[in-house]
């Protein structure tokens, strides 16, 4: 298996509205793949189809070597997901959240404790390990959320706007965590609308109105459009239809 994600002509409609319009993407194992697009471009919808939360209208997709429709259970065992909304349990502590997800993903109690402690000290969250998550600042919550999604060492992790609303310093740290995950062999599929972050990706695609308008390495894309930043590439692509990134 060389491809972590294989998407062919994937379409998802809501009634008459086509949110994802025949997209095709291949992501290599261990890659950090940026999935860019303005608000409403269809990024979240595409991710939800890939992780089995939504059924595709047509086309096919394989994640970690399994078909997302017919082998969704196999897929779910091998992926991590951080949703666009913060979705740890606010009324539980970081440690309790870790225990819960570790248990759900079939880790042993011993593993959960060891990985949990390692994770919390890496994040510098040991002092708040037993405080309610609701009392933590957003940046900490996001980092915790990402680490929890990585707890079971998934083959592929889907991050939907993980750095939304987070300060620049924390964003930087967040990307270090993403690189560390990729270095351990996890494929990272990440959406963002911060164009500076796009430069950190191995490869990226830009989605406009449900279609993939461009795909390639940051350098190749800049060369293709003859511009000096991804931001400019983005503006070129987005201008004909909608205004700017949201």
């Amino acid at each position: 298996m060389t491809l972590a994600i294989e998407v062919k002509d994937l379409t998802r409609r809501f009634g008459d509205f086509t949110a994802v319009d025949a997209i095709s993407v291949d992501v290599q194992v261990g890659e950090v793949f940026g999935f860019l697009g303005a608000n409403g471009a269809g990024k979240t919808t595409a991710i939800k189809v890939l992780i089995g939360l939504l059924a595709p209208t047509s086309g096919s997709a394989r994640v970690a070597g399994f078909d997302v429709v017919t082998q969704s259970e196999e897929v779910r065992k091998r992926i991590g997901y951080m949703s666009q909304r913060f979705s740890l349990y606010d009324d539980l502590t970081p440690r309790e959240n870790i225990t819960l997800y570790g248990g759900i993903y079939g880790l042993s109690d011993l593993d959960i404790r060891a990985r949990g402690t390692a994770m919390l000290s890496e994040l510098g969250l040991m002092q708040v390990a037993d405080k309610l998550v609701s009392t933590l600042p957003l940046g900490w919550k996001q980092k915790l959320s990402f680490s929890v999604a990585m707890l079971h060492r998934p083959a592929v992790v889907f991050l939907d706007e993980p750095t939304g609303g987070v300060d620049p310093v924390t964003r930087r740290q967040f990307w270090e965590m993403i690189y560390a995950a990729a270095a351990r062999g996890t494929t990272v599929f990440v959406t963002t609308h911060y164009m500076d972050e796009a430069e950190y990706c191995d490869r990226l695609s830009i989605m406009v109105d449900g279609r993939i308008a461009a795909i390639g390495t940051p350098a190749a894309l800049k060369a293709e459009f003859g511009v000096s930043s991804i931001d400019e590439v983005f503006v070129r692509l987005a201008r004909p239809t909608t205004a700017g990134a949201g």
């Binding site: 089995g52 997901y81 979705s87």
Partner: peptide, 11 residues
Amino acid sequence: RGTLEILLVSP
């Protein structure tokens, strides 16, 4: 709150 999605994506 969106936590159900996380549960549904889990095994």
